[in-house]
Amino acid sequence: MIIPLIRALVLLAVATLVFAVVAAAAEPERYKRSVEQYTMPDVVLINQDGEKVRFKKLLESEQPVVVDFIYGTCTTICPILSAGYANLQRKLGTDTTKVRLVSITIDPEYDTPAILKEYLARYQAKPGWDFLTGSRRDIDRVMNAFDAYFRDKMDHKPLTFIRSPKDGKWIRLYGLLSGIDFLDEYKKAGFTVTPGLSTKAAVPN
């Protein structure tokens, strides 16, 4: 149980890094944005219904696609990202499937399809929002493809990606976005939301 000094120093290093960023985040600075070109691996993942999903095909779609990385038992970051997804779905009105929302687990050890399903239900996810798990190696490759490799789920960072079917480019958003920012980014990618329907869709089901 005696942990060598060096290990303890690692903790300090972590703490320093962590808190430096937090201090910065306390400033009004909101999020970082860039436009990227990514190549998706042709892997087979599994969705909340236990169905196999050919990942590359799913993303290279005619529809707008949004991707984030979360996991079933995550603390702070996932609630925020997922609340953002749920909010977007409410704004989309009745046809929630016109945008493909994809969440990918970074904890494929624990996240079975049943866990994914239960998670989506907690956020009252509607059709169009898929949560994927799969082989760890395949998920590593997906993370790498997005230049978003997390060595461990505790190193999780808030990243959201929006793909425009027009040119296949990805908008990369780093940070925890407000609902308005998220919608703005989504519109900037060239999409529309149907405001008239949103109140109707917001009625809890």
Binding site: A25, T75, T76, P79, I80, R122, P158
Partner: peptide, 26 residues
């Protein structure tokens, strides 16, 4: 962004002991 307590609540972030958590940068 409106959220329901059934999606997540205090325990999700501050944990059961109330002594807080660290995840990534938060």
């Amino acid at each position: 962004v409106p959220v329901d307590g059934t999606a997540f609540t205090c325990v999700s972030c501050h944990l059961r002991s109330g002594l807080g958590s660290v995840e990534g940068e938060v």
